[in-house]
Amino acid sequence: MRTFLTFINVTWKSTGGRISLCIFGLCLILAVIGPMIAPFGPSERCYDAAGKLLRLTPPSWEHPLGTTVMGRDVLSQMLWGARTAMLVGLLTALGTVVIGLNFGLIAGYFGGRIDAILMRITDILLGLPFLPFIIVLLALTDRNIWTIILAMTFVMWRSTARIVRAEVMSLRERQFVAAARTTGASDADILYREIAPNIMPLAVTSITFALAWAIITEASIGFLGFGDPDVVSWGSIIYDAYASQAMYRAPWWVVPPGIAIMVLVTSVYFIGRAYEEVINPRLQERS
């Protein structure tokens, strides 16, 4: 909790960070209350007064972002999609950092054999084509949102682990670690009480990257048609538009989800950057 507060505090210092935090906060709120305020269900079909299905109607008061070829309300789908994007993004980022952090800590701290094995694993994961691998995995198993989150986490922790490991290796030699060791602290104590707090800034930056990546990847999976059929995501909205061949006639259907992804991910990147610039003085531009 304290880490979280410092994080907000630090990021808030720059204008870019402040705007980005606001955007991200807004998306978070929409993810929670979006489905409640959405005027229609995600796959509800809309009809006009005469009972005719509203296919591809341009934006109106009734449907601010128009309707799809199936007569669904785009705005409502967008609101439901916000929840998916946030859920997938946050869970994947969390999983990635928890696994990556622990692997990195252990590899960096113990070194030797353990380090060699763990690093070989990350090497192989680095050589693994990310998106195709997830597609194959989804092709062979159930296409549901939890599989997607697990699959992404399985591949993505590699980068975090490597970054954390490098940092731990340099921290391991520092005074305070030696001091802890002489007082008889156990390895676990040293790792999680002495070293881990110093890794936190790195972990936070790592979370932002993982978050950004997860949101884009989930959208790509949705776009390729391998998303969870029961869940609306911004990627799957674009996929529906693409598959129906109507996207070039109905920009109101295609443009909003893309912009939503772009704005959300940009804000995540800028949050990470704003935080990093304050935390890591080396990155600060010499004025």
Binding site: S220, Y242, Y248, M262, V263, V265, T266, Y269
Partner: peptide, 17 residues
């Protein structure tokens, strides 16, 4: 940064459009 954050398939579709 914004471009990097956009999904590439969506950019492609806009380009086609």
């Amino acid at each position: 940064t914004a471009l990097q954050s956009a999904p590439v398939f969506w950019l492609s579709m806009l380009a086609i459009l």
